[in-house]
Computed example of a mutant assay.
Amino acid sequence: MSESNKTNFANPSMFILLGIPGLEAAHGWISIPFCTMYVIAILGNFTILFIVKMEPSLHEPMYYFLCMLAITDLILSTSTMPKTLSIFWFNSREIDFGSCLIQMFFIVSFSAMESGIIVAMALDRYVAICHPLRHSSILTNSVVARIGLAVVLRSCIFSLPTPFLVRQLPYCRTNVVSHSFCEMMAVVKLACADTSLSNYYGLIIALLVAATDVFSITVSYTQIVRAIFSLPTKDARLKTFGTCSSHLCVTSAFYIPVLFTIFTHRFGHHVPLYFHILIANVHLLVPPVLNPIIYGVRTKQIQARLLRLITQTE
């Protein structure tokens, strides 16, 4: 390590990202599934956006929310994966201090945004099943736009203090970050001052957003299940519940890695560091990969439009 990385400084001009410490020899191999998933995420989410735009039958609230989710997934995965791959392939480990803070903000804000959009999709399922005759009058285009705006504003308001809290800390030990991207806690650990405020704020916001959104989804599905069991036939119940299956898969794909990341990072002190970093990358990469696949497989209109698109190009 160079002497410049060991000297004392209050505000470093850059940080050095190590990638996945302990697995440096395997960076090349790890990059293969990471790059593959990133390409699938880019292609899949752009395909969803294109199909929803071109297919008039998909111009309804659920698919508007799906487009919001696709845009969020594109930005969330792109905020980290290109830099991570450059570390794996080119050993390009330097990241400007300001760029690090911007990356941190994007990770926190767009993770919260994705959570909020999943809640909005649960609301759509609730209205569609519990108030089917009023669905179009309740979830109008203007209401959907206001919900989307509220999700964005909530995420930005909660996330905006994060880079400012990190920036005001003095960094006098080292500027080497043991991570593949500027994860908040990995950067805060480098500070040589009391980091309680940053630590508690990060934990409170993560748990507050996750707890509030999971509670909202639970309430929605409690009402949905009650409505489903009130249907007269088993076939009707299965068909109605089937309309929720895609959303339930998306919800699981997002929240299981999130909660696992939060609790292993806070309480899994004996878990190897490389495992923490791999899970953090999975949390940011797997949902963008799975979401378009789940809706592509489960939605007949998307399948039909995609097949027409493929046959037209042949």
Rank of each mutant, 00 (worst) to 15 (best):
I129P: 07
K189S: 10
H283A: 04
K53Y: 15
P33K: 02
I204K: 01
F215K: 03
M113Y: 12
T80F: 14
G19E: 11
A25P: 00
D96S: 11
L165S: 07
S137E: 15
S137Q: 14
P21I: 01
R266H: 06
F275V: 15
A41S: 11
R125W: 03
L284R: 04
R226F: 15
V289L: 12
S99E: 03
G22N: 03
C130P: 04
F90T: 06
P12K: 05
G242L: 01
M185E: 13
C67Q: 15
H247F: 08
G28P: 02
R93P: 01
F164R: 06
I310Q: 10
I51V: 15
T243H: 01
R305M: 10
A25N: 09
V214I: 14
R266Y: 08
I279W: 03
F164T: 06
Y295K: 00
V127T: 13
L207V: 05
T162C: 14
S92W: 12
G148P: 06
D235F: 00
C172Y: 13
L208C: 09
M184N: 11
R305A: 13
A253H: 01
I20A: 13
L153K: 10
T195D: 13
S252I: 02
T251L: 09
F106Q: 02
F158K: 03
N8C: 10
N175G: 09
N11Y: 11
G28W: 00
F97R: 06
H269C: 07
G28V: 00
V166D: 08
E114A: 11
V108E: 10
K239I: 10
